[in-house]
Amino acid sequence: STKSLGNGTSETCAEFRVKYVGAIEKLQFDMSRTLQEPLDLINYIDAAQQDGKLPYVPRDEEMILGVSKYGVKVASPDQCDVLHRHSLYLIVRMLCYDDGLGAGKNLLALKTTDAKQEACSIWVYQCSSSEQAQSICKVLSASFDSALTSVK
């Protein structure tokens, strides 16, 4: 469902329907250093779900996750209220993987940091399929590339 709004004014270059699972905010820096490897991050999310810090099942309401050169914005379907705004330069990495519950759903884990890079946060969303998750990763990767080339 990649829908790029060609009218130029809109910041969003691709929008996806996802569900919000939860977030673990303000992890101290030394903790965030242990979450560099993808598997460490996945295991950390697993443990958080088992400890009840993160739910297994996302909230029912679908959200619109928009990826643009500015970053990732998560808003309600009518886009009236913005739930999260992750600016591109504070996004450290994005990870997508099968949630292992057998329904083919993919989890999207977004690791962000703060401007002083002292703490990091983990934001978890659920995609309807791995294809959707892959598309989101592709668009974000393109955003990183375009941000990189524009800096030079």
Binding site: R33, Q36, P38, L39, I42, D46, L88, Y89, I91, V92, R93, M94, L95, C96, Y97, D98, D99, G100, L101, T113, Q117, S130, A133, Q134, C137, L140, S141, F144, L148
Partner: peptide
């Protein structure tokens, strides 16, 4: 829980962080 393929996108600004 068994995890299948994992796709990672890293911000070049934080490579290795």
């Amino acid at each position: 829980i068994y995890k299948s393929a994992v796709t990672t996108v890293v911000n070049p600004k934080y490579e290795g962080k």
